[in-house]
């Protein structure tokens, strides 16, 4: 396309043959477009770049020189202090303990429901999908009061929960993530599995393969692109959860990293650049996952939107 774009001569047929070539006469508009996009993109990155920049400077310097200034000192002190005062390693570990089982169980559970409801037609298969889809659309705050009361009344042995109850335990957070996120995942996976050839069911049956074999050895491998996309997306969503943990995990020390932000700005964090460094700790894993798995990430979002 670029070669044709630069060619100075072309006849009328060629010119109308492609939309792109029709753009030839308004070259200056093209330049303006690039300028506009570049400027907007740079403005868009200002809060993130600003946070990174500030996190490497002492707060006193930002105060005296202002944000737009050449740095006199670049230091890791903010990161060091935030790491210690925010107990970041412990918070990462808390997140890890919730994220890994929650993510695995969510994909496992929702793929089973999606399989059962989209590969077989039975009395309640559509009702089941409606239930999960609608559940995924509810605001979390609708269910929080009864959920909190329920969690408060489920006892857990001491070695499973510091609080002795489901409330305030890692298990409680894992369960609600699985229950809530399986709404969206079931919706997306059923849309995907529905499009796999119907003959697969028939072939498995003829070969004498059971339901589980059809699910685990035939349908699941074919669903891998959707699972990869969902895993990336759900990683971010569960990692980014703030609400469930703030309400159901009220002991600051046991909170996963994102919701431990709720404790920031208080006694420990006295300056803005320290907060910027702490924010970078929280943001880093999602940013890394996004840049490493960008393709899957975008695919996940659009999978959900595809079948509107």
């Amino acid at each position: 396309m670029t070669v044709v774009d630069d060619a100075p001569t072309m006849n009328a047929d060629e010119a109308s043959a492609s939309f792109e070539q029709n753009k030839q006469p308004i070259r200056p508009a093209r330049v303006l477009l690039y300028i506009f996009l570049t400027v907007t993109a740079l403005v868009w990155l200002v809060p993130i770049i600003g946070a990174i920049y500030a996190s490497f400077r002492p707060f006193s310097e930002t105060v005296s020189e202002g944000y737009f200034s050449v740095p006199n000192t670049l230091t890791l002190d903010n990161y060091k202090n935030a790491w210690e005062q925010g107990d970041i390693l412990k918070k990462y570990w808390n997140t890890f303990l919730i994220l890994v089982p929650a993510l695995t169980l969510t994909l496992f559970f929702s793929s089973m429901v999606a399989f059962a409801a989209s590969r077989y037609s039975w009395k309640f298969n559509i009702s089941l999908l409606v239930l999960f889809t609608a559940g995924n659309l509810l605001p979390q705050q609708i269910i929080i009061q009864p959920l909190f009361q329920m969690y408060n009344r489920v006892p857990l042995p001491e070695f499973l929960s510091n609080s002795g109850r489901l409330n305030g335990s890692t298990w409680g957070l894992i369960l609600i993530h699985v229950a809530f996120q399986s709404g969206f995942c079931t919706f997306v996976l059923s849309n995907y599995m529905k499009l796999l050839p119907k003959s697969l069911n028939e072939a498995a049956r003829v070969d004498g393969a059971g339901v589980w074999t059809l699910y685990w050895q035939i349908i699941m491998p074919l669903t891998r692109p959707a699972l990869a996309a969902l895993a990336t997306l759900e990683f971010t969503w569960i990692y980014n959860d703030f609400f469930w943990a703030v309400v159901l995990e009220q002991q600051g020390a046991d909170r996963p990293i994102t919701s431990s932000l709720a404790n920031l700005g208080g006694e420990f964090f006295t300056d803005d650049n320290l907060i910027a460094a702490a924010s970078m700790y929280v943001a880093a894993p999602t940013l890394i996952v996004y840049f490493a798995l960008q393709k899957h990430f975008i695919a996940g979002l659009t999978l959900g939107a595809d079948k509107g």
Partner: peptide
């Protein structure tokens, strides 16, 4: 360009709050 516009989407709104509070 897409990455530039999309990057904020992967951040939690809580982090967005703190970033904007401290930087902007």
């Amino acid at each position: 360009y897409q990455s530039a516009f999309y990057t904020p989407v992967v951040l939690s709104l809580a982090v967005v709050g703190f970033m904007w509070q401290s930087v902007i």
